[in-house]
Amino acid sequence: MAGYHLTHLRELEAESIYVLREVAAQFENPALLFSGGKDSIVCFHLAQKAFWPAKIPFTLVHIDTGHNFQETLDFRDELVKKNNVNLIVGSVQESIDAGKATEEKGINASRNALQTVTLLDTIEKYKFDAAIGGARRDEEKARAKERFFSHRDEFGQWDPKNQRPELWNLFNGKKNIGEHFRVFPISNWTEMDVWQYILQENIEIPSIYFTHERDCFVRDGVIYAHSSFMQLKPTEKVERRTVRFRTIGDMTCTGAVVSEASTLSQIIEEVASTRVTERGSRIDDKRSEAAMEDRKKAGYF
């Protein structure tokens, strides 16, 4: 019976497509959280495959901090136009203006944590019963404990010590009214798998993943893009550098890497030889050892 054999990428793809179809079958109003980053782009690509030749049965939801890279927003709008899908943008600025979220103070202020408020409000407002996200278990140690189907109570909270066991490929999406699920179809993918898959499938990604010149400044060893969203300290100076982004988040908490990689193959080579995790450039995880666990319990992505 040799010969009936899938490569690791095909097996991961089959698993993710299976999970996405379970979402469509088990929930009434699912959303696909779309940030314009590579992981959510891969999720979108997988969803297209899962339901072809039908349209994807999910609404795209972007939680916009107002501090995003313009390139990412342009990419998002282009993708929505090209594929004729529904997009809902939840605005952190609106949550702040409505007094539901409070802007952080100080030089390292970030709207990253405020996204949780806007996300939960958006889920409630549109009555989404499942929100699909591109989080991966290899990203961070609290995420390593995450389920494919992750139950959230009526406050949107995650209870990591009381999770439903997941066996074989049987996913239990039963819930009470007002509760919802987070679903992570690419749980078992690593950063390397994602890049390999983007190469294999020839998937378009925002330009800032590739090398480009940009005005940057360095703070605590992290290279930040210079923007009107971040105040410079007197000692910090702006320099033109050749960089790319390994992960894309809010501009205030995403660090760049010095890189000449201009093709997917070069990115893969770079990822293969790097000695730091991709979230090593994410300042949001560094606030404490359990930073991610705490944010996730509150309802973060």
């Binding site: 490569t7 097996e11 390397m192 390999q196 030889s273 790097t274």
Partner: peptide, 15 residues
């Protein structure tokens, strides 16, 4: 960094 950087097709052929 022990993955085959010189042979990208190698990545696509793992199980």
């Amino acid at each position: 960094n022990n993955l085959p950087t010189d042979n990208l097709s190698g990545y696509l052929d793992m199980d």
